[in-house]
Design a protein around this nucleic acid. Structure first.
Lengths: 233, 233, 233, 233
DNA sequence: GATGAATGAGGTTTCATTCAT
DNA sequence: GATGAATGAAACCTCATTCAT
């Protein structure tokens, strides 16, 4: 797997061969992703979509069988990304934390580059059929399990602080990344790759063992630590 | 402001005086928050809500004027929390990073304790009227600005690594926290306070200056740093 | 079972208790039965029905959950009739042919008195869900099997001509009766009971052993018989 | 008219001359008849038909001008049969009851051999234009009138029981025959001709004068007669 | 306070039909 | 002859909301 995720045309096509209608498919799915991002899946009507692509409402049904197909097609894009990510990363010969960092970087880059897609993936999953939700959830769970394992491996290797709770740590770094679609704008200052680097770095810093030396007070003055008792009830 | 956020009955009441119907208001708003969380605001019908509280659909209109009122009431709960958080934290005499850590801890505790509320706040904001959205966004922006300022202050004080981008850092820690509603379950192993402590700690560790000493390998093995060139195109 | 089939209000009611909306239910189902009879189920729109009962299209959904419910409710009327008919007739102490005649008479009377219902039952069954179709078909088959058995019993008792094929005979008499809805009009000359008597009599005459005596020419001039060779290919 | 009805290619053709596309016409009309039989005219879409014949929906319009054309073409097949039947039977020199038996036999044979056609003819007539319906109804009425006249002639000749109501008798025998499409299957035990013979025989037996002699108990034990008072309320 | 009938706008979907290619 | 994109009307259905009781 390369650093960038760019499957050719990710959207479903009905006729298998090359087809001059492929542009329409892409146009429809891309517009749908944008509208779902802007208003939410349920608040986007097919009338909205038809208007945006310049078709009649009914004409959309040449390209889809149901509105849910649109959402599913979009979530499949993300789903397939995670599947590839799961397969790809183990091929490389890296330390656990390096692997983790690599996965998070790729994930974050994808989350920014395809923020419409990840927004649909996370916000409107409940609009998919039970069956389809389960598929998505299974892959998501496998992905999270892989990340947790890397954290544990990193702890065994001394790369990750022993007091880190792998579950919490993974929830935390995923939150950072999956939150990107809430604020990212393509016209913004930073590219998806730059954002990915920043977040991968922040994640690694959060996980690494706490420095205990004295030449610098970074570690000492941390105003509280994981051992700190929780705030008063 | 105390460590825990617990405004008495946060839900709106139409008749201003005390009223034996207050329970109904609370029941309706709490049930709505749960349903919105489970299915999304738009996919939850007032019939669903009426069924869940044991009323007829029409009877709900004794308690609300519109469906949006429910969503607004719920988001107001979060909104008011942020307003209080903004006011409260400066009263304390703490270093910037300590203040930041305190805000994040309170925020995270709220995010877990009221995960239904924060989910509605972030996922269904686009269903509010323009006017109401703007109000919410303004407060959110003020909150984020305050956090960024604390990061910058921390950098000035040497508590926060100089190479941290305040915008990215704040987006990152907010993502961690606002993601809590995606995985938190009240019946889970950790209490909101414990979760809050963990995330506050992780955040602080991510922000603090990188340790450069040699007595310990925490710093050396960081597999990449913020200066690392982004992944290849 | 009495000779006439008159269950009080045959149409479904949602709230179980007595209800002032029962009239509406009856009005809607009766109008639906009439419209389905006139134009067929598929060619009758809910708009047609709404217009006919003076409601808005959407208001019909207070009384039904789907258009198919209307068809199902109507076919249930016939379905229940056949179930009662199956149970009821054996209680009487009659000869096989007398029982058969009694069932056919009751069936024919029902077919005329409720010609809207039987028309829907037979013409639009394919619009019901698979599940519901199967239910109906099972009962229909049980009913036909009972009639065939009565024909066979009649043959054993010498009441029915031995050369009669029970399957064909039952198909024939059912055809007679189920065809009633094609021509019956309530304002016509004959009442359902009169029609039922005529058809029961015709059926019995068709089944009885052929007379072979000579005092009368009834038997002799039958222009062909079951033994006649089929028409030329 | 021969005993079997087999007009060469009954389906309409647009280009009047002979044409290698005739097979397509036949295929389309026959498939349509089958589909209409299985699901009803209104519930069969042109997409269903196109799929079944291996064409695209739009391509059907090379062969038809409208969906109704298909139904009309099919009903015309039956319509023409009845016209031929009306013309043909009087040429023969037979007694009234023999003529009647002959017509019913031919009708029944047609009804079985072309059960798809007769099903469409009777079930979906209401989907034709007013004009076309009227044409069909006129022919049907003429046909029924001819049958009634034969019954009356048979009564005058003493071949048919005097107490038979010609209208009812004709409705009855037509019901038997027109019901055939509800149960006939080509792979069944009996051929259309055998079925036709059975039903013609049953009809004749039902109509003939009741035997009043004593050598045999066929007549005496008829459990009720046309004079019997109708069943109790 | 509560009901439930009724509304009316708008949602997703189907489908016969047209037409440029 | 055949395609398949596109249309537009109309279908079934949902639902927030109103209101007389």
């Amino acid at each position: 797997m390369t650093a960038s995720y760019a499957a050719g045309t990710p959207w479903p096509r009905r006729p298998p061969g090359p087809n001059r209608a492929d542009e329409r498919y892409a146009q429809i799915y891309e517009t749908a992703a944008r509208l779902f991002y802007e208003k939410g899946y349920s608040r986007t009507s097919l009338q909205d979509l038809a208007n945006a692509v310049g078709l009649q409402k009914g004409s959309l049904y040449h390209y889809i069988d149901s509105k849910e197909d649109l959402l599913f097609g979009i979530t499949e894009y993300a789903h397939n990304f995670f599947l590839q990510l799961l397969e790809g990363v183990d091929e490389e010969n890296l330390s656990p934390l390096a692997k983790l960092e690599r996965m998070l970087r790729l994930h974050a880059e994808f989350a920014a580059a395809h923020f419409h897609v990840t927004a649909a993936f996370y916000n409107d999953r409940s609009a998919l059929s039970e069956e389809r939700q389960e598929r998505v959830v299974q892959t998501r769970d496998a992905y999270e399990a892989r990340l947790r394992q890397l954290v544990r491996d990193g702890q065994a290797a001394g790369e990750v602080a022993a007091d880190v709770d792998p579950r919490m740590a993974v929830f935390g770094v995923l939150g950072m990344i999956n939150w990107i679609n809430q604020w990212y704008r393509p016209e913004g200052r930073m590219s998806p790759q730059e954002i990915a680097t920043v977040f991968a770095t922040l994640s690694v810093r959060a996980l690494r063992p706490v420095c205990t030396c004295t030449d610098g007070d970074g570690g000492r003055q941390a105003p509280s630590s994981a051992k700190a008792s929780p705030a008063a009830p």
